[in-house]
Every structure is written in structure tokens, then in C-alpha cells.
Amino acid sequence: MSFLNNLITGISLGSVYAIIALGYTMVYGIAKMLNFAHGDIIMVGAYVIFFATGSFGLNPIVGILLAVVVCTVLGVVIEGLAYKPLRQASSLAVLITAIGVSYFLQNAALLLWGADPKVFTSVIPEGSLPIEGVNITYVSLVTVLVCIIIMLALTWFTSKTKLGKAMRACSENKDAARLMGINVNRTISMTFAIGSALAAIASALLFSSYKNLIPTSGSLPGIKAFTAAVFGGIGSIPGAMLGGILLGIIETFAKVINTNISDAVVFAVLIIVLLVKPAGLLGKTIREKV
């Protein structure tokens, strides 16, 4: 039964990675940039929930909604101030700016909230489903359900709504989209807003199972989720989902074998996958034109 339990833990962890990876992959798809500050937005969201539920005694749901609002505003402001002036710049310049934003958020959090770890109180009731032999905690159950809902909602959003179609058009070809009357800048801002809102939800789920919260706690999950996005094929929404869940399962099983090298195993699998399928599992291979 321990195999099944590990699998459940893995899927639950992977679902969190998947939600974070969606933020990375959508931003990458439309703005062609690696948003390194995404992991730190998760951290900010977690602090907001921590203070809202802990210090002000608000209902967890209100806390999460507050985090969603704060993160969305933060994401849009960051995009407008730091990334928008660099639309025409080289991708490396944007990357370094994103790293600058990441440093900024981490150090601002350090100044505001200090370096000592905060113990996050789970927003989901502790305990597990009353099933004999299998240990499904409420946290994992909710995490997986939320992940599925987000996945379905995003698929519907990008294929059916006007804004979603605009997003896909912008990621295909920005100039053509502009000629069709799409406001490219607003569409990119919206993408950042959605990605950051997802980051806030991910923060509630992530820190409900991994409780210690410090100003740098967002960066490693961020990097892993980014790996997951690449793993599944960056730019593809189902790819981010698949990559995230696979990554979570691999990491959990690697931890069972040896805790110290679980990250090494995760990254080794990524390398092997990319060598066999250079555009990720569900990514499109684009032929180079001469």
C-alpha cells in the first residue's frame, strides 16, 4: 500500500507544480520570456494568506481571495513597470530584469516580514478520508480537485472566450494579431494577471502541506514548476499539467529512495526527456527555415 500512498502524495505535489507551471507556460507562450519572479509571487501570496488568517483571524477562503487579488495586482504592476518597457529588447535583457524583480520581491519580503520561518496554518482541514489502508489527506484531495478544475476552466477559457482566443493569437504571431484589432499589450497584461492569480491559489495549496514559510521559499518550487513546464513542452497548457504531475510523482518516489538526491533525479529525467524529445513531451517541434 505504500506504493499507492506515495503515488497519491506524488500526484498531489505534482498538481501544485502543475498549477504553478501553468503560470510559467502561459507567460512564456505569449511573451516568450522566462518569468523568474513567478516563484516569488507564490511566496508573497503565502505571506498574505498567513497574515490574513493568522494575525487578522479571517476566514481561510477570504484569505485566499485576498491573496489572489494581491498577487494579480502585483503581477500586472510588475509587468507594466519592469517588462513592458522591454518588449522589443533581447530575451536575455528580459530574463535579467525578471531576475532583478525576483531579488526585489525576496528582499522586500525579508525587510517587511523578517527571515525567521513562519509556520503556515493549513487552509484545508487536517485529516484524511476514512478509507481502509490508503492515506488520502483532505489536502491532497482538494489539491487534485482544484488542479482539475483550473485545467478545465483554462482549456475552456483559451478555446472559447474572446480574450482566450486573443491570447492564442498573440502567442502565434503578435503583428498579425495587432492587425486583427487585438490589443496586444492588454492581452499580455491579462496573461500575467491570470498567471499570478494561479500562483496565489498554488501558494495556499503548497504551504498547506509544506508549512515553513521564508522569503526564499518560493524560488525552488518555482524552478521545479518551470522544469515541469519545459518537461511537458513549454507554451502548451496540457503539457504543463502532464509535466507537473509526472514531476511530482518522480520526485516523491526519488525521495523514498534517497532524500538527498531527489532533485538530481528529477533534473536527470528532464535531461533525458529533452534529449529524446527536444521540445518536451507535448511541445510542437518547429522546423527551422533557412
Binding site: T227, I261, F267, A268, I271
Partner: peptide
């Protein structure tokens, strides 16, 4: 292996190798 890849994929694989090397020295 890394130089077979292009662009951002190459970047992420070098990141992965950097992390693997650090993990190996950790044990």
C-alpha cells in the same frame, strides 16, 4: 548532450546539470 538543444531548452538543461552537480557534492 546539451549542445544538441537550442535556445531556452539549452538554458534549462544547463540549469538542470548545475543542480545535479550540486546535489552530487551534497552526498
Amino acid at each position: 548532450p546539451v549542445l544538441r538543444l537550442r535556445g531556452d531548452y539549452l538554458a534549462i538543461v544547463t540549469l538542470a546539470f548545475g543542480e545535479i552537480i550540486r546535489n552530487i557534492f551534497n552526498v
